[in-house]
């Protein structure tokens, strides 16, 4: 382009014109973006919340309603009212009698392509992971993305053992990914052939997350249960 040569020989009046054009276009563009952003924000928020809620219902089979809890600095759970989700949250799910079925929490970690975000349901009674759903992943289509769809892989998480050790603050056995077809113990995750790295990533994500959340949720089991009863009385 000859643009650079021309700029050096431009008269001052001309640069004023350039400035006007750029600023003018900039203002028009900024206005349009802001309008679209404002217009679509409530819809996007609603859709995202709906998607999350659908996922919660998926990972906690048999629930009728959910309630969001927030973890405070003293590691206690408090019911979260209204909007705004900051810090660490867990979603408790209750059946139609208001009994606690389980708690869904989000976990994330590095996958093969990008960060994988998952949601899983934890049942404090059985001390098991009862459901698993991939919220976000950019794994290779056809190979790594099987972690989202493969029924055999999903079956790993219908009863994944995460029981606590005797001291109630660590896991007896951390969930771990094993080679396809060699799953022997209830805390092992059977990997997918051809998607070893993605499967291992899921194992690591689940291991790290359950190690953190399971003792916390177990300790605060009553907080979730009691809150539900209060709601019922209302």
């Amino acid at each position: 382009m000859t643009g650079t040569d021309q700029i050096q020989t431009t008269a001052p009046g001309n640069s004023m014109k350039m400035l006007q054009a750029m600023v003018g276009i900039g203002i028009i563009c900024a206005l349009m973006i802001v309008l679209t952003f404002q217009g679509t924000l409530p819809i996007i928020k609603k859709k995202k919340a709906e998607a999350l809620e659908k996922a919660i219902f998926k990972v906690l089979p048999g629930i009728e309603k959910t309630k969001t809890f927030q973890l405070d600095q003293n590691n206690n759970f408090a019911a979260l009212e209204g909007e705004g989700q900051e810090g660490k949250v867990a979603y408790a799910g209750y059946d139609q009698d208001g009994k606690l079925v389980g708690v869904a929490v989000e976990a994330s970690g590095q996958g093969y392509a990008d960060i994988i975000r998952v949601l899983y349901g934890y049942d404090p009674e059985k001390q098991e992971v009862v459901g698993f759903y991939v919220l976000e992943s950019k794994e290779t289509p056809g190979l790594g993305d099987k972690i989202e769809k493969d029924p055999a892989f999903q079956a790993n998480f219908s009863a994944l053992d995460v029981s606590l050790a005797d001291d109630q603050s660590t896991l007896k056995n951390k969930p771990v990914t094993v080679k396809n077809g060699t799953k022997e113990n209830p805390w092992e995750i059977d990997a997918i052939t051809g998607a070893t790295i993605s499967s291992r990533a899921i194992g690591e994500i689940m291991g790290a997350s359950t190690e953190y959340w399971a003792p916390l949720i177990h300790k605060n089991k009553e907080a979730f249960g009691l809150k539900a009863n209060e709601n019922k009385q209302k």
């Binding site: 382009m1 643009g3 700029i7 431009t10 001309n14 014109k17 350039m18 054009a21 750029m22 276009i25």
Partner: peptide
Amino acid sequence: IPKQVRIAS
């Protein structure tokens, strides 16, 4: 749009 800044615009 002046020629010099057209691509940017």
